[in-house]
Design a protein around this nucleic acid. Structure first.
Lengths: 213, 213
DNA sequence: TACTAGTGAGTGAGAGCTTACTCACTAAAA
DNA sequence: TTTTAGTGAGTAAGCTCTCACTCACTAGTA
């Protein structure tokens, strides 16, 4: 469900650029190589070979190697991320789980699925983020604008019904996000998968206790 | 306290190699540049210039550029990390805080101080870890051998006095570590400092609730 | 229908640089 | 005198990016 939706987001943002089959091959090959070896250790020769095109083709569409990286990261930060968040918050406000436990579980499951569906992109961003301050501040900005705002009103409901501790939205979000990351990051780095269902329950159990009033 | 101890660990591991002043300058310059720009974007020319030596000097001691990276990462993983953990667990078992809250606070404060004292090294490892599986599995191994073992017996005490939930050591550690990372990582990436004292209390408050039986 | 002109994605050899690494040499210490 | 740290110009490999060229295809013309 979340899977196919995310997939369509990616294919959409790809087809929007109306690229030829070969240009798309360049992007998908770059995504794979960048996430496996890192941007700097991937040569344009590698990309061309992996995509089955000539190096000239790589540079027809993307003027520089950095341009390929931007063509991967930018749509993800500017389109995939915001759309996924918007869709999720809309779903949450509509469904309106009366029980905070159910809300937490849905949230964690949703976010973990998203992370695993977009593992290559997330790995690339994680790598870049350590040496690129610009991306860090843009992601921070996104976190504030996209997440903190919508979540505040949702949290308020649970706080008023005495199910959620009355801490600032920022603080509550930090614990939720980092607890999820605590499961996703090791798996991402070790290139392993996890049992999302089981792990979500585990994380929800802990967070529910920690975020009780 | 923790600060000066860690500092001495680094200087010790540096002087153990009994390097000349220029060779040490090469290492400290590399540490700075690698953590700021990343290993691949740092040239040996940059290192030589920053250290105020010739490129030949760089290669007198370290046979390859990878060798410089290893000379930074290896002592950290094999000596600094284990010693810091050993010293901490020894301190904890000796002092034996009767109150789990006090233990948690000491633990978090200690770990955060360590992280900020070793920020450059941690940034380099974070960057490398995304493209180097070998380091990942070695760190995982360290986590198991160094942390899980000693912590198990400490946790047992608090579990028996009804202050700590009876979850596996691994699970409890995961939540403690990730909660700390939730404060340290954003600061590390944004290259900012945080109020360790205030933030430690915040984190301890959350963890105490989440880890109550 | 047959011919021609035009288009643009794709090619790959190679220009131009950067980079990691070497080595013949110097200066100074032992 | 021997040894050793340090030097920096030099080298070869590898990188990004360019550009003159090909060729399948389309659209207009006779």
């Amino acid at each position: 469900m979340a899977n196919s939706y995310i997939q369509s987001l990616i294919t959409e943002s790809l087809s929007e650029l109306n690229l030829t089959a070969k240009q798309k091959a360049v992007l998908t090959a770059s995504l794979k190589l960048f996430s496996e070896k890192g941007f700097e250790r991937t040569s344009t020769h590698d990309i061309a070979q992996s995509a089955g095109v000539s190096e000239g083709t790589v540079y027809k569409q993307f003027k520089t190697k950095e341009g390929i990286l931007a063509a991967i990261i930018e749509p993800f930060i500017q389109k995939v991320l915001p759309k996924a968040v918007a869709k999720f918050t809309a779903e949450m406000t509509k469904t309106s789980f009366p029980d905070f436990n159910d809300f937490l579980l849905a949230l964690i499951r949703n976010r973990m699925t998203f992370a695993f569906d977009n593992m290559p992109q997330l790995r690339i961003i994680l790598h870049e983020v350590t040496t690129n301050e610009a991306i860090v501040s843009r992601l921070e900005n996104h976190f504030q604008k996209l997440l903190v705002g919508p979540m505040a009103s949702i949290f308020k409901k649970y706080q008023e019904t005495g199910q959620l501790v009355k801490w600032p939205t920022n603080r509550i979000l930090r614990y939720i996000v980092t607890t999820i990351m605590g499961y996703v990051l090791p798996a991402a780095l070790a290139r392993q998968t996890i049992n999302i269902e089981q792990v979500s329950r585990e994380a929800a159990e802990f967070l529910l206790k920690g975020l009780k009033p």
